[in-house]
Nucleic acid binder design. Structure first.
Lengths: 292, 292
DNA sequence: AAATCATTGATTGATATCCAATCTTGTGTT
DNA sequence: AACACAAGATTGGATATCAATCAATGATTT
């Protein structure tokens, strides 16, 4: 078992890439310490890890916040991701054996089935996973870790944007990349990777200031069930009073059953049905306004 | 200023890439805490940063050690570095303006002069710096940070090898890469980058188990001069001081692959001066005795 | 009343001390 | 010699405390 700070960093990472903790959200040491029932020091170590990973930013004497990348940084992240995946593509076009191509095709097929079945959530996850599988086939752990970090950051970015992707198109891109690569048309494959990412970035609109916001306690509760086994179950209210905001619509995003327990929080972007009334609109200035 | 754990992490990073702390070297919390005159917790946070950077590895209940990458990992690191630099090369061949090409040529010239002057140490630093300048011209900070981290890890690797490079050849490679790129011969430039790194890896012999080893106290002494301002060596009272203030410039500086590794700590493999086995300061705080 | 200044409160950065778990070592026993 | 076991050392973590800084007040001045 790894250290506790690593465990907590992992949970926070999950919560961030699940979009339960949104950019700009304050990550107070004392608050998190109470939520996880550990000392502040462990929380601090976890926050250091998150900051090193680019998912949080720590401001001296002001605390840690979920990172809120600028548009500039967003483009840099996608450029870097493109660069990495193009490089991997070049390597694979030389070195990948039949088993590798089969794995890629199989993955694309799985996603295609998910799309056909209307399971958008699964399709979204598989769509992201494709890139990970792709890089894994390079058999370079260092590269995998770099890529995984970039993917986490792009996932964070998707909290800031209008995620209105056309899964069919993106899926088709995956399929075509595999085809082109296997046929040795490296240049075209690399161009397609570039286009693929650009098509994602193009949809970005970062000036929206409205997020469905949860307090960290609400956001993190699902991940704690495993730990707070049975009895003590509901993590919730140790100290209800202070938690920053007024209790917003407690049901963050319906998610109906939310049965998925610990592992499967794959929250997809919901269309803008906006069940949340505009109550928050003028209510107060939340701490989401970031410096810079 | 940034946090103390960051400062200490920076110093340790410098010491590692200067080859003063060699792979496998134990980084004991208490020992480092006394050396830097901080609490163990700050040291621990610094070690977490190093581990996240790949320069140290932490084993539960056993402590932290300077990372000792395997041959496999070494090759992966160089593969990743090649991939990144090839990608940057592709970008630069499209986008770089005359000023950029001039900067690259100027850098190559500086190294050429250093070689001509027989200043191997400077030539070595400039040789590494070339790659950093190269990537900086991509104007992608994310990419720069990834690259800088890879460079740090390759520098660490050089503690494990017979560093018997042919500077002239490597320098010539730099020059030729610039030439090829500016002429638009991207493919050849990328191949040369690959060859360049492979020629470095080829010289690696990792099974040597004998290192010139210093105790951390010896290894880190040079970096502490700046901190012990004014009063220098003297007793260094622990409680009142806290001199957060005046440190400033001469300090440890940011690690980011910035130039000027030239702070004179150029890894020269020291002669095997028999290390005093246990004679190390048993006293507590006073052991910051200055070098020499 | 508006603007400025000062006090208060809360949060972070950091230290010291203590404790439990685990690893290492050295010794004693068979 | 091999094994077991006790002692010591080190790490991981908790708690309590303190100083410095930032945020939000409230009081004062114009």
């Amino acid at each position: 078992m790894s250290s506790r700070s690593q465990t907590i960093a992992d949970i926070l990472t999950r919560a961030i890439i699940d979009h339960r903790l949104v950019p700009g959200c304050k990550l107070g040491e004392r608050e998190l310490a109470e939520i996880f029932d550990v000392s502040r020091i462990v929380v601090r170590q976890a926050l250091i890890r998150l900051a090193d990973d680019g998912l949080a930013q720590i401001e001296r004497n002001r605390g840690a916040f979920v990172a809120k990348p600028s548009m500039q940084e967003a483009m840099e992240i996608y450029d870097a991701l493109t660069l990495v995946e193009q490089g991997v593509a070049a390597q694979l076009s030389d070195r990948l054996g039949p088993a590798g191509w089969a794995e890629l095709r199989q993955h694309v097929e799985r996603q295609r089935h998910a799309v056909a079945a209307g399971n958008d959530a699964l399709a979204d996850v598989l769509g992201q996973e494709f890139h990970t599988v792709f890089v894994r086939l390079s058999r370079n752990k260092v590269m995998q870790e770099i890529h995984a970090q970039l993917v986490r950051r792009t996932t964070l970015l998707r909290s800031l944007i209008t995620a209105d992707f056309d899964y069919c198109n993106l899926l088709d891109d995956h399929s075509r990349v595999v085809d082109l690569l296997e046929k040795g048309r490296l240049k075209q494959a690399m161009d397609l990777i570039d286009t693929h990412h650009r098509s994602v970035v193009r949809g970005y609109i970062m000036d929206r200031e409205v997020f469905p916001e949860m307090t960290p306690a609400e956001a993190l509760a699902p991940y704690l069930e495993a730990k707070a086994d049975g009895a003590t179950a509901s993590v919730a209210p140790r100290k209800p009073a202070k938690t920053s905001g007024p209790a917003k619509t407690s049901g963050p995003a319906k998610t109906s059953g939310n049965s998925d327990g610990a592992t499967a929080h794959l929250h997809v972007h919901l269309p803008k049905k906006d069940p949340v009334p505009t109550s928050r609109a003028a209510s107060k200035k939340t701490n989401r306004g970031l410096p810079t």
